[in-house]
Design a protein around this nucleic acid. Sequence first.
DNA 1: TAAAAGTCTTAAACTAGTTCATTTTTTTTC
DNA 2: GAAAAAAAATGAACTAGTTTAAGACTTTTA
Lengths: 197, 197
Amino acid sequence: MNYKESHKLLLSNVSRFINLTELEKQKYISLLTEIKVKKKDFLMQAGEITKYEYFIIKGCLKVYTLDEEGAPHISMFAIEDYWTGDLSSFMTKEPSRYYIKATEHSELLGISRENYDLLFREIPKFERFYRILYQKSLISYIRRSNYGISLTAEERYLEFKKKYPQIVSRITQKDLAAYIGITPEFMSKIITKVNRT
Amino acid sequence: MNYKESHKLLLSNVSRFINLTELEKQKYISLLTEIKVKKKDFLMQAGEITKYEYFIIKGCLKVYTLDEEGAPHISMFAIEDYWTGDLSSFMTKEPSRYYIKATEHSELLGISRENYDLLFREIPKFERFYRILYQKSLISYIRRSNYGISLTAEERYLEFKKKYPQIVSRITQKDLAAYIGITPEFMSKIITKVNRT
DNA sequence: TAAAAGTCTTAAACTAGTTCATTTTTTTTC
DNA sequence: GAAAAAAAATGAACTAGTTTAAGACTTTTA
């Protein structure tokens, strides 16, 4: 069958871990919602109960919390071919502490909690898909949680640049500072220093 | 059927997410290896390819790396009813960067990579078990990776104490410092300060 | 396309956390 | 249960990263 470009991208993402029949592909696609969000608009805000998990077709978004002083802490940047959302609120149905804002005009496919549950009942293979997806995410978050406490800010910056060169060029230095966990002023100093060397 | 205490603990851990028939329980148990490790002994060392994922029946272990200066960075403390290991090395079959050392005499059940793969083929329900297990771990690591970059050392200490009171009392201040990401000297200062307040 | 708003840079004064050195206390070992 | 080893406490000098403030540069908006 002939699929839309957006669905092709998603199916190709899924086919990394499981093989679906045509029927299963169509069933899966029927469970998804198309979402567009303009630059600077929110996909969700703190206090809301997360309705969807999102697959990014196009664009770039930042997932962040605000601390008591109102300073942002960016948890992740999500770009094409990545999944994002607030898994905790999505699963527990408790209000989220996260904001998700588009830093570019973005197109997403969302799966609602009801359809996510249904998916496992209708196509149990997806248990495997998510087992592997979460396993891989877990491995990278375990590594990241160690970086935060054991590397200096400069080392974390170099790691990020090495691991996500395609993201560095698409975000502001200020947002990168909020991800690395430092002030924009210190981020500026690091970049000046690294470029000089 | 009558199971050993250790197997009962594991089966009860698994039954949080999936129901197994008697036959499946027996099959599962047949895939596990019993392991004992004395206080201060290594369960594994950096450079080795991880052979097992471990479920802790009894005891306490620390999972850590050593940086270029030889300073330890503790990634997790594992106690009864928790799973541990190096998931990355276990999956990729590449040498691990982690050491796992018992801080108390410990008893574990290990599952080898071959049996882990076999488990999914023989009892596909385990895809669901691990999907949920990894999902929950992922949620807590996402939270932790933000703590590392957005909280002060004192706040991280208070968080740890609140979340794992049963672990705090079983480990040394020095190990806690290596987990929090600070020097033992500064850990000592924080504790003095917090107790004074 | 001018004005406004946001981002980046620089610098001086400050604070959280480190390093190094010493002493006291607790735990381990024979 | 004494000796040795490891952990914890304390303090002084240091460094990585913050704060505040101001000016230059860039992007957005009307």
